[in-house]
Amino acid sequence: MTRIQRETIANLMIVGFGILLLTWAIPTYTPAYPGYGASPALVANVSVGVMIAMACLSLVRLLLARFAGKTLPAEEGQFPEEAQSTGFTQVGRVNLLHLARFIIPSVLLLAAIEYVGYVPAAFVFLMVIQYFIGSRKWLQSTVVSIVLVAVLYIVMRYGFGVPIPGPQLF
């Protein structure tokens, strides 16, 4: 996908999201005007208005660029920032598979903690995450998982007195 296409999709999504907010979410989930002061919906409407206006402006710019045949880089690498000296901009292609690899286990951890408790769920989660990161040293992964789970357990329970999430074995 070219950069123009990616930016166009992003801006269109912002416009769509903004319209949804303006027409449904803000009117439905904002209290009615109490008769004094500014309306509770004012800042929300202005914010969404700014989002839509800026996205439309970007779309116009992209449209002009497309018709004028201007050259935004047609295809870009995954880490184009490495060409820059500071190296801290991270604009680039989205890798959905990579995102899923780390988000899905995290979401499953949330659900698993409620059913099996913190210790087993966190242990399995850390083993899976280390596998996805590329660790194939099982002993090292096991030690890292056990130590990390134990340290945070002790810190939460005995350091801060925070209730440990989910059912507890001990």
């Binding site: 209290p31 969404v48 800026m54």
Partner: peptide, 23 residues
């Protein structure tokens, strides 16, 4: 756009004048 999105996210919660939930 990012700043406006931040403002919007910050509005979630109890509205200060009416003390009713918003967004």
């Amino acid at each position: 756009i990012a700043a406006a999105f931040g403002l919007l996210a910050g509005l979630i919660g109890t509205e200060p004048v009416t003390a009713l939930p918003r967004l």
